[in-house]
Amino acid sequence: MTGPGHVEPGGAPLVGQLPGGATLVKVSVGPMDNNAYLLSADGDSVLIDAANDDERLLALIGDAPVSTIVTTHRHGDHIQALADVAEATGARLVAGHPDLESIERDAGVSGVTGVWDGDTVPLGETSLEVVGLVGHTPGSITLVYAPAGGPVHLFTGDSLFPGGPGKTWRAADFTSLMDDIEAKLFDRFGDDTVVHPGHGDDTTLGVERPQLDAWRARGW
């Protein structure tokens, strides 16, 4: 059964219009069904996670100017196409401060700008807010697109999915991630907020909110 925002691995991209005049293109790339997102507004574009399949991503971008490529976290399945797409586009590279060195080393790139809570990524005449979420990795980030009139759109990488938080390997990391997603996402944004995760289908905070206590209880 598929949910909202579903894309097939290797399949056609999904194109949609967001409030505020932005266009969102979602595509699944690579053997781990990674989502890559191209968010465009005012003649500018931001690519979120150049995860794999550089040729497909560059074909998706076409002649559109890409000012920034954001990497949501340091895991290898999210950075396979980063070097090639960065070279082809000349885009500025952005990632969470704690994951920066790992991304530069493993992706073979340099000059990545580190960001964290309260920083912004320009997108045309607007910007995307950065939210740091510690747990899946030390430097995982979420991007917030908050157009006037809403709803808010969150690009959460592997920190929040339909049905639960991202994978953690220690109890302390799970607690940290749950604390962060509750305080920085669920406590702040409304139920109509759309979640665009790093793999799989979309969801909303309203759908997931009733499950928070259950996630805490199960520990994953």
Rank of each mutant, 00 (worst) to 15 (best):
G108A: 08
E208C: 03
G3N: 07
G11M: 10
V7M: 05
L123F: 14
G219W: 00
I61N: 02
Q211E: 10
A41L: 14
D180Q: 06
V115A: 13
G206H: 10
V194K: 06
E104R: 10
D201N: 08
Q80A: 07
G118M: 14
V25A: 10
E55R: 14
W220N: 00
I79E: 03
D119T: 09
D77H: 01
A95Q: 12
E101Y: 08
V109C: 08
G43D: 07
G10A: 09
T142K: 04
D187H: 06
T142D: 11
V194N: 05
G166I: 05
A86D: 06
P165L: 05
T204M: 09
Y145V: 02
E129A: 15
S176G: 12
G190I: 14
D54W: 04
L39R: 06
S40R: 10
L205F: 10
D173I: 05
W116Q: 06
H6A: 15
T89G: 05
A95S: 15
D213K: 01
V25S: 09
T126R: 13
A51G: 03
P197R: 02
G139H: 11
L133T: 03
L123C: 13
G10F: 09
S176V: 03
D158K: 00
H136W: 10
G62P: 05
G132C: 09
L39G: 02
V152C: 06
T71E: 01
L177M: 06
P138G: 09
I181N: 00
A22L: 12
A59W: 12
H75L: 04
V115T: 13
R105K: 15
V207M: 10
L60A: 05
G30V: 04
L133I: 13
T168N: 04
R209S: 13
M32Y: 06
A36W: 03
P98H: 14
L100T: 15
T193N: 09
A59S: 13
A171P: 14
D106I: 02
A22M: 14
D84R: 14
V144W: 14
R188I: 15
L128M: 02
F155G: 00
D54I: 03
V15A: 12
L18V: 12
A51S: 06
V112F: 10
H97E: 15
P210D: 06
G157F: 00
V85A: 11
D53T: 05
Y37I: 01
V94H: 07
T89I: 04
D201G: 06
R216V: 00
T126I: 12
P151Y: 10
D179R: 01
V70A: 07
T203R: 03
M32P: 02
P147L: 14
R218S: 01
G62N: 07
L160V: 08
P210Y: 05
P147A: 13
I61T: 01
L128P: 00
D213Y: 00
S159N: 03
G149P: 15
F186G: 04
A59C: 08
G114E: 15
A41R: 15
G43C: 08
E87P: 04
R105D: 11
D192K: 09
S127F: 14
D49K: 02
A107Q: 10
T168E: 02
